[in-house]
Simulated scan of single mutants.
Amino acid sequence: MSRALLRSVLELRAPSSRIAPLFAPFRHIQPRGFNTTAPIVEPVAQPHVNNAPNPTDDQVRPLAFKKSHPVEPPTPIADSVKNLLPLLAAQPGHYITIHIHGFPYLVQEGDQIRLPFKMPGVLPGDVLRLNRASVIGSRDYTMKGAPNVDERVFECRATVLGTESEPLRIKVKTKRRQRRKRQAKSKHRYTILRISELNIKNLDEIEASS
């Protein structure tokens, strides 16, 4: 019994030849052949007929710089005012966009204007010459200024009818944690005008006045 136990202990201490080593010896592996592919050929830019590098009379302009208008746009008519101003003056029912202290008003002859302020230095019955207008027109024709129409083309006059005042407004103003109250009173006044005259001049009148 003891001999058998001793033999088993010796077998455990001695390295067994049956166990394979942890690291196998390095073996040289012959490399396999690589698959060869065809070389990549870059595409060569071929000149296109519609993409001429330097456009001349015989070649077409490049697509990126092609003109939006193949033909030059027509030039504006130099004498359009001479041709169309008599037609504008001949039609009845003229309208005008006048500017008074920066406020535009679209009016006709006989209309009333209530200015949002009291115009200083005027009295009821005074006649004012309005010489700033951006648009003058009739039913079929319109003349636009850049930014204003020449004052020699038209003649617009307004009569001061008087001054209107709104009802007295009282507003109570208070402050936080204060018992004091203050009353703010306001009663705005407005000037009323009436367009008494609106004429569109002809070329003869313009030349005579100039």
Rank of each mutant, 00 (worst) to 15 (best):
E72K: 13
G125S: 02
L106M: 11
H188P: 02
D126S: 12
G145I: 08
L84D: 07
V60P: 01
H188S: 04
I77S: 12
N50H: 12
T37Y: 12
P76H: 08
N199L: 08
R27V: 14
P76G: 08
I206Y: 05
V9W: 14
R132H: 10
L123K: 13
V41R: 12
N202G: 15
H48I: 03
Q183Y: 14
S16N: 14
P39N: 09
E205Q: 15
H28Y: 08
L6E: 12
K185S: 09
L63W: 03
Q91P: 03
S196A: 15
T191Y: 00
L203K: 06
P31V: 07
M143R: 09
E164H: 01
F117P: 03
F23L: 15
P76R: 14
P86L: 01
R18F: 12
E11R: 12
E207G: 07
R169E: 11
P43G: 03
P120Y: 02
P116H: 06
S210M: 13
E42F: 11
V71A: 07
A14F: 13
V153N: 00
N199A: 13
L193F: 04
A52F: 14
R27M: 11
G121P: 01
K118M: 08
A45V: 06
K82V: 09
E155L: 09
P74N: 12
R180I: 10
V135D: 03
R13E: 10
P92L: 04
H69K: 05
G145N: 02
S2N: 08
F26N: 08
R177S: 14
D57W: 09
L85E: 06
L106K: 11
T75I: 11
L87R: 10
Q30T: 10
L161T: 01
D126L: 10
R132V: 10
L22C: 11
Q46I: 13
E207R: 15
P31L: 05
N83D: 08
P25A: 15
P124R: 15
D58Y: 08
